[in-house]
């Protein structure tokens, strides 16, 4: 009995960690700009593919350059970090193409939805053209030395899931610490809370905005690389599902709330782990049903701030 509970907790935490990572990616941009970057799911895919290429993986038969690969073979950890950085840079490019032109014109926020979705569509289809639609597995060196699974008091969990959970936790803690302690992190928070005051304090909010995009892309890239090592790269659409779940988690926790995104991710992961086998077909609906109910009871999410309506 206790084993089953522990197993469920472990399962839930492992998938919840990734949801939280994606939700944090949304949160960063949302808190500064007040809009949702729908290209995040595609950036998640990109992170997976870049990690694969950096580790020396080759493009297979259906891609644009069959047999081509980068002339490097980085070990997993540096490849993952470099891929996160590169995905962050790609996210800056998305900002430049999909967000900046609209910001300059002062367009309605609704338009950002469409342009960022367009950016995601372009990115996913470019990936498909370059890499083909087949699945890719990371080189076997990725997890060399790790056992297949770990035994935790009667529960079994794949060691890659433990790794995933550990990296997600580390990333979340690092991000929180950075936001609370560092000068630039506090500046970002200041812009998120009140742009006008931040400007009076001499904070370059344009730079903060770019920083938010960079970090959000890096988180998505990190998630993509981690998922890639766990379940391989099932195709360029892999990030879209995580993007959608992350969105549900984001709203569940409350838009723009960092603790909310983390709590929401874990809650969503656990709820999915608790679905009994007979009803597993309904699992995907469960996440959204919970979201639906939470929104009806707390229209601003679990940990969202109640805002004063402006007249």
């Amino acid at each position: 009995m206790i084993d089953a509970v522990l197993q469920t907790l472990l399962n839930g935490a492992a998938s919840g960690g990734v949801y939280a990572l994606v939700a944090l990616g949304y949160t960063l941009v949302f808190s500064v700009l007040g809009v949702i970057n729908f290209a995040l799911g595609a950036l998640f895919s990109l992170g997976g593919y870049v990690t694969y290429l950096l580790m020396g993986g080759r493009i297979s038969a259906n891609g644009a350059l069959p047999g081509w690969g980068l002339p490097l073979g980085l070990p997993f950890t540096p490849a993952l970090l470099l891929a996160a950085l590169l995905t962050g840079l790609a996210s800056l490019l998305v900002e430049r193409l999909a967000f900046a032109p609209l910001r300059r014109r002062g367009a309605e926020p609704l338009l950002y939805l469409i342009t960022s979705l367009g950016a995601g569509l372009v990115l996913v289809n470019l990936l498909q053209m370059l890499m083909g639609a087949e699945g890719y597995a990371f080189p076997a060196t990725a997890l060399a030395g790790l056992p297949d699974a770990l035994q935790v008091a009667g529960a079994r969990i794949r060691s890659v899931q433990v790794l995933l959970l550990a990296v997600c936790t580390a990333a979340v803690i690092a991000l929180t610490l950075w936001l609370e302690r560092s000068r630039s992190g506090r500046a970002l928070k200041a812009v998120a809370e009140d742009a006008t005051t931040a400007r009076l304090l001499g904070i370059d909010s344009e730079a903060m905005l770019r920083l938010a995009f960079l970090l959000s892309g890096a988180l998505a890239g990190l998630g993509g690389g981690l998922i890639g090592v766990s379940i391989s790269l099932p195709g360029p659409y892999m990030g879209i599902g995580y993007g959608l779940k992350g969105l549900a988690v984001l709203v569940l926790g409350g838009l723009g709330s960092v603790p909310g995104a983390i709590a929401g991710g874990l809650l969503m992961g656990l709820a999915e782990a608790l679905v009994p086998a007979d009803a597993s077909g309904w699992r995907d609906a469960l996440a959204f049903a919970i979201l639906f109910l939470v929104l009806l009871l707390r229209p601003r999410g679990l940990l969202g701030r109640r805002q004063v309506e402006k007249v």
Binding site: V251, G281, D284, F288, F292, L295, L296, R300
Partner: peptide
């Protein structure tokens, strides 16, 4: 129920509705 929600919250709640209906038709 949902029209009490505002802005992006309404958008996401309606996306949730779409997903729930999709899974229901499937199941």
């Amino acid at each position: 129920l949902v029209l009490r929600l505002q802005g992006i919250y309404l958008a996401i709640a309606t996306i949730a509705l779409v997903e729930i209906v999709r899974v229901a038709i499937l199941n």
